Simulated scan of single mutants.
Amino acid sequence: MPSLGRLHLVTDTRPGRDPLTVVRAALTAARADLVVQVRVEDSATDREAYDLAGRVLALCARYGATCLVNDRLHVALAVGAAGGHVGADDLPVAAARHVLGPTGVLGATARAPETAVAAVTAGASYLGVGPCHATSTKDGLPDPIGPTGVRAVADAVDVPVIAIGGVTAARVPALRAAGAYGVAVVGALSAATDPAAATAELLRALA
């Protein structure tokens, strides 16, 4: 399994966003320390997801960075990504592991120790835990769990915990202190006026 970077960039494909420009800028700052998770809107076609994932993968390959595909594991396999990430409404973790095979990177979403342990038992390589703080990036999310919730999950499992949801550089130290291996961000980079500088700031906070 590829080594897992501490900073995960989740692509933002909402109207008005330019995910490839953000990915390119983040890679120039982070290089191999970045994991890019290709996530598209639910309304996007598989062809659109495939095209974006292929272009992101090509960018990641230049820097030795890891590329994953969220939700659509068949797209991950089709483009040759390192693996994928599944949420609560996607394939069960055990089924996702079956699809990706024994060596693919498989992330799973969890917010409580019980579901976290179940996900790891079923084959998750790492956990995306949150939302840690309030965020407007995604609709219908449950209440934030804060660093305390991250600590509860991190104490229950022995795989990397990636905190997500309203993450900023200023909030990284508390999340790291709570046991998070790293963080995943969307708006912190996609809405930044200088995504490369914002990436560097996040990496300094994670160091």
Rank of each mutant, 00 (worst) to 15 (best):
L52C: 10
L52S: 08
G54E: 08
G54T: 12
G54Y: 12
G54H: 11
R55F: 00
R55V: 04
R55T: 13
L57W: 08
L57G: 08
L57N: 04
A58V: 04
L59R: 10
L59G: 07
C60E: 00
C60Q: 02
A61T: 01
A61Y: 00
R62F: 07
R62I: 12
R62C: 09
R62Q: 15
R62Y: 08
Y63G: 09
Y63Q: 14
Y63L: 09
Y63I: 04
A65W: 08
A65F: 06
A65Y: 07
A65S: 15
T66K: 00
T66W: 01
C67P: 06
C67E: 03
C67Y: 05
C67S: 06
L68Q: 11
V69T: 09
V69I: 10
V69K: 02
V69S: 12
N70F: 02
N70P: 01
D71L: 04
D71E: 06
D71P: 00
R72E: 11
R72F: 10
R72P: 07
L73M: 14
L73E: 14
H74L: 09
H74F: 09
A76E: 13
A76H: 11
A76G: 11
L77M: 12
L77D: 07
A78H: 09
A81P: 14
A81H: 12
A82G: 06
A82T: 08
A82K: 07
A82Q: 13
G83D: 05
G83K: 04
G83F: 09
G83V: 01
G83W: 07
G84K: 00
H85R: 00
H85S: 04
H85M: 05
H85I: 13
V86A: 08
V86R: 13
G87W: 10
G87V: 04
A88N: 09
A88D: 12
D89G: 01
D89L: 12
D90Y: 13
D90M: 10
D90H: 04
L91G: 07
P92I: 06
P92K: 00
P92G: 01
V93E: 12
V93I: 15
V93K: 15
V93F: 15
A95W: 05
A95K: 07
A95S: 11
A95N: 03
A95T: 11
A96N: 02
A96P: 00
A96E: 05
A96G: 03
R97I: 02
H98R: 15
H98W: 13
H98K: 14
V99Q: 02
V99A: 03
V99E: 03
V99T: 02
L100Y: 14
L100W: 13
L100H: 10
G101T: 04
G101A: 03
P102D: 03
P102Y: 05
T103H: 12
T103L: 09
G104E: 02
G104H: 03
G104N: 02
V105Q: 08
V105C: 11
V105G: 04
V105L: 15
L106G: 02
L106V: 03
L106T: 00
L106K: 00
G107T: 08
G107F: 10
A108Y: 12
A108E: 07
